[in-house]
Simulated scan of single mutants.
Amino acid sequence: MNDAAPVLSPLAAVYLERRVDMRRFFLARLGGRGDVEDLVQELYLKVLAVTEEPIDNPQAYLYRLASNLMLDRLRQTRRAGARETEWRRTHHATVGVLDVADTPDAESAVIARQRLEKLSQALETLSPLTQRVFRLHKFEGLTHAQTAERMGISRSAVEKHVSLALGHLVSKVGR
């Protein structure tokens, strides 16, 4: 059994001596944010990874590593904030002071999916002609006149088929 302590690099030894100072260094610059301990630990990992020996001034090198690490973290936070802002700008609307998502919550999505399934099933019970007229008008967005022209039927017939389909769907699925 070997009781000898592990041999530390001069930089690691300086880190261990200055760990409390490093914590204060980060605290003073970051204003007490919660990631100070993470930075202190990450700095230690960086110190252990340094293989450049000998370092002329380990203390100055340690502070340079700490500064670079902190700046990298700040840049990373700023980039994440910019991404979040851009995502919110493109995916949310603001009404007054409320942030409103353009996408429904999970429960609303499930309810909508179930309702769509019921609508599809109810639509399938209609005659093929009524189904086609309804799909052209409501799903493809054709006007009554355009639907009539495409189907080769009168506009009045299109209106009757659409009305029939809507009445049937409301009776089967509701509003």
Rank of each mutant, 00 (worst) to 15 (best):
M1Q: 13
M1I: 12
D3F: 13
A4W: 06
A4R: 11
A5E: 13
P6Y: 04
P6K: 06
V7E: 12
V7W: 05
V7D: 10
L8M: 14
S9H: 09
A12V: 01
L16W: 12
L16Q: 15
E17K: 15
E17F: 10
E17A: 15
R19A: 12
R19E: 15
M22T: 02
R23W: 10
R24A: 13
F25T: 00
F25Y: 11
L27H: 13
L27M: 10
L30W: 07
G32D: 06
G32Q: 06
G34F: 12
V36W: 05
E37Y: 08
E37M: 12
L39D: 04
E42L: 08
V47D: 00
V47W: 00
L48M: 12
A49F: 01
T51W: 03
P54N: 07
P54V: 06
I55H: 01
D56H: 06
N57K: 14
Q59K: 15
Q59C: 10
A60C: 04
A60H: 05
L62E: 03
L62C: 06
Y63C: 08
R64G: 07
L65N: 03
L65M: 15
N68G: 15
L69C: 13
L71Q: 14
L71E: 14
R73V: 02
R75D: 05
R78H: 10
R78F: 05
A80M: 10
A82W: 05
A82S: 07
T85C: 08
T85E: 15
E86C: 02
E86V: 08
W87C: 02
R89D: 14
R89P: 05
R89W: 11
T90R: 08
H91L: 07
L98I: 01
L98E: 07
T103K: 04
P104Y: 04
A106N: 00
V110K: 09
I111Q: 09
A112P: 00
K118P: 00
S120L: 09
Q121Y: 04
Q121V: 11
A122Y: 03
A122H: 01
A122G: 01
E124C: 05
S127M: 03
T130I: 08
T130H: 08
T130S: 11
R132G: 01
V133D: 03
F134T: 07
F134H: 03
L136M: 04
K138R: 09
F139K: 09
H144R: 03
E149A: 09
M151L: 08
G152A: 06
I153D: 00
S154W: 04
R155V: 08
R155Q: 07
R155K: 13
S156R: 09
S156K: 06
A157S: 09
K160I: 12
H161I: 02
L164A: 10
L164P: 00
A165M: 01
L166H: 11
G167P: 01
G167T: 03
H168Q: 14
L169K: 13
L169Y: 12
V173Q: 09
R175M: 15
R175D: 11
R175N: 11
